[in-house]
Design a protein around this nucleic acid. Structure first.
Lengths: 115, 115
DNA sequence: TGACTATATCCGCCTATGCGGATACTTTGG
DNA sequence: CCAAAGTATCCGCATAGGCGGATATAGTCA
């Protein structure tokens, strides 16, 4: 029960929902998220910690970059929510805008580093 | 987006999840919930307000009793989450215990008032 | 090693919200 | 109209957690 509330708590924040929606597109590093969300690094990093701590994302270090991706969970509620999020979040206008910004960002960045 | 976060916030609390699970069984009044959850009236009432305010429940006055039931929403995310909750919450042990307590409470109460 | 980049964490500040006892309001029945 | 029941709200208190600048850490490359 506590576990379930924790799963929902992680989604009870606008920024974290945006992050989850972006990660649904694939693995991203912190600097990409900063750029797309236009948020300070400490803010993005804090939310990612929260998501990691609650089991929503996994990280993977590659050189100086920390890559984050959605985690697959063994908890049925968690899995069911993932499915819902993947199906419903893309309907939201802000999510669509973020995705467009992501595509644009990745295009500009090409094979260059983050900045 | 803000709306979505609000929907999740309402579920980001153990007590509210228990209430939602109980209301999935059908309409209940505050005093029934107090008895089943073993929580003070002000606490139960506060959580019901929160759930009402976030669109999760509707109330209906019948004499001195205020009856609460799950609300049907027009918001796709909300509807999808309802389905998930109804499917997943019953798997949780604390929810099963609450349901048993509810059945017991209703049986003891019969046609008498709440106390 | 030293400089630079990417990230995590610390910090002080501020708001949201949980708790439950106390109080106020609403409805009913006599 | 009063008393009692059911409920909502107020209150003071405590903690969680949001924010973003500042600082610490980790990895890379010359």
């Amino acid at each position: 029960m506590k576990t379930s509330a924790k799963i929902f708590k992680a989604l009870a924040d606008e920024t974290r929902l945006r992050i989850v929606a972006l990660l649904a597109e694939g693995e991203l590093c912190v600097c990409d998220l900063m750029a797309v969300l236009s948020l300070p690094q400490s803010t993005v990093s804090r939310h990612l910690s929260y998501l990691k701590n609650s089991g929503w994302v996994k990280d993977r270090r590659q050189g100086q970059w920390m890559h984050y991706r959605l985690a697959e969970s063994a908890i049925p509620l968690h899995r069911a929510l993932s499915t819902v999020l993947i199906g419903e979040l893309p309907r939201l206008e802000p999510v669509q805008a973020d995705k467009a910004a992501l595509i644009n960002h990745l295009a500009n960045k090409k094979n260059r580093a983050c900045r």
